[in-house]
Design a protein around this nucleic acid. Structure first.
Lengths: 262, 262
DNA sequence: TAGTGGTCTAGACCACATA
DNA sequence: ATGTGGTCTAGACCACTAC
């Protein structure tokens, strides 16, 4: 039989472009995904902007459109990119109209988040501070390193419902003020994208039932005997770098934390 | 110019096989996905078994392997199927070795779920009953219809940690006994697969912080002032048919509910 | 009309598992 | 050695969006 020549094209030095493709022997589309991640991380494409078309990227990386597509598919499934048919592929942002408060899973018992309108925010405190051992561990810092610490109350329809404490690495978020947190009319994560170029792409939460201390119960206007949900969240930017520690106390008499399992 | 004939093959009456492919004009791979779902639902392939190879399925449905692959990809991403390279594609089951207790998100604060060993179960109650309005709504029944109601305590290392109340549609789970629940050495969901052929593929949870009543605090051996996590779960089998309502009370002094956001 | 992502096909080769 | 799923390519057509 006549042997058919392999279909593999002369694939020039595979990915001569700078940047080490992770484990060196991963599938091509994984390497492409890594390169796309680098471009996202470096800010080549900013939140809300569109990235080049699949064809353009295929030409740039010297691979087929299908390979680029598979890389983009994974990034889209991880919520880093958003595809819009006929328009292009866009860098995900916390400032989206219809996915606002992506990380907030507290829902009103009656009605839905949309009809409830945006939360009213009251900033209690926002100051530069030193990382405790616990905060340092969560943020990948050393104890005593600079952090921005903030406390605020979120209210829905005038009812204080969430008390939040935030800790952010001081070196990255230097200059963040209560004014900024209070002024921006949207998710804080969207403000951090805009003002500091840091995007939270993933988070872990540890949830417990607790009783508030005196100060907490006062701020939430509940009795100290009211059980509350404690939600400790660590948020990560690209490459699993922790960028925020947040502790929320949620009232769950009018709201509930909604989760989907599969 | 010479016009090139279209690449579309003579695709026989598209999917003459019985069963209405949802909205009639969905993508081919979605229709294939629907047919695969029917086979899963009808029990043609049972939990833990392998399904036919992609090539076989492609021949059966008269489509290309790539189209079958995309259908399987989606079912795998929804945890209905599990791919194993070199071996085949398998029907997911709650009896898996390494994904036991898929729906249980309560983790020990120190160590991990593996080192903790399996939970000890104590069945408090298991009897036939009538659906209250609330239970009926959750299970898609009418008030007063037959339900199996059960209550049990799960302990880790001898410490009672979870108090669960379960409600199951009586017509589907007729004959379920405390003995069965107690004897089966694994997740209850695996037992329900084996004994009743019902597989839970998805669930919703509503989480709150609550205080236990007298009976609950006794069963969990905590004071009535101990805040607990209330986790109300509705579990669904194929086609979003609700098949279980479960309310868990979790102690969160030694454990926490872990969630990942993206 | 042109450009984008979405679907579908076809065929080749690779990596892994089993016999 | 054989069969499975995994990767990669290539090209065609479809559906949506904007101009």
């Amino acid at each position: 039989m006549s042997s058919i020549p392999p279909t593999v094209p002369e694939l020039a030095p595979p990915l001569a472009a700078g940047g080490l493709p992770a484990p060196a022997f991963s599938p091509l589309y994984q390497q492409i995904k890594g390169l796309l991640l680098q471009s996202l991380e470096s800010g080549e494409w900013k939140p809300g902007e569109s990235i080049p078309s699949e064809m353009d990227l295929a030409a740039r990386f010297r691979v087929s459109q299908g390979t680029v597509r598979k890389a983009i598919d994974e990034l889209a499934s991880e919520n880093l990119l958003v595809r819009r048919q006929g328009k292009g592929t866009f860098v995900a942002t916390h400032a989206e109209q219809h996915v606002q408060y992506r990380f907030l899973k507290l829902m009103p018992d009656r009605g839905d988040a949309d009809t409830e309108g945006p939360a009213e925010r009251r900033i209690i405190d926002c100051r530069s501070s030193r990382a405790s051992a616990e905060v340092a561990r969560a943020l990948g810092l050393r104890s005593g390193e600079s952090v921005i610490q903030a406390r605020r109350v979120l209210a829905f329809r005038g009812v204080p419902t969430i008390l939040e404490d935030l800790w952010l690495p001081g070196v990255t978020f230097k200059g963040l003020t209560a004014q900024q947190m209070s002024d921006y009319p949207g998710p804080t994560y969207a403000m951090l994208e805009l003002e500091f170029g840091v995007r939270m792409v993933r988070a872990d939460e540890k949830i417990r039932a607790v009783l508030p201390d005196a100060e907490q119960s006062t701020l939430l206007q509940v009795t100290p005997a009211t059980p509350l949900l404690s939600v400790v969240r660590t948020s990560y930017t690209y490459n699993d770098v922790p960028m925020e520690l947040r502790r929320g106390l949620y009232r769950t008499d009018t709201h509930h934390y909604r989760n989907e399992l599969s």
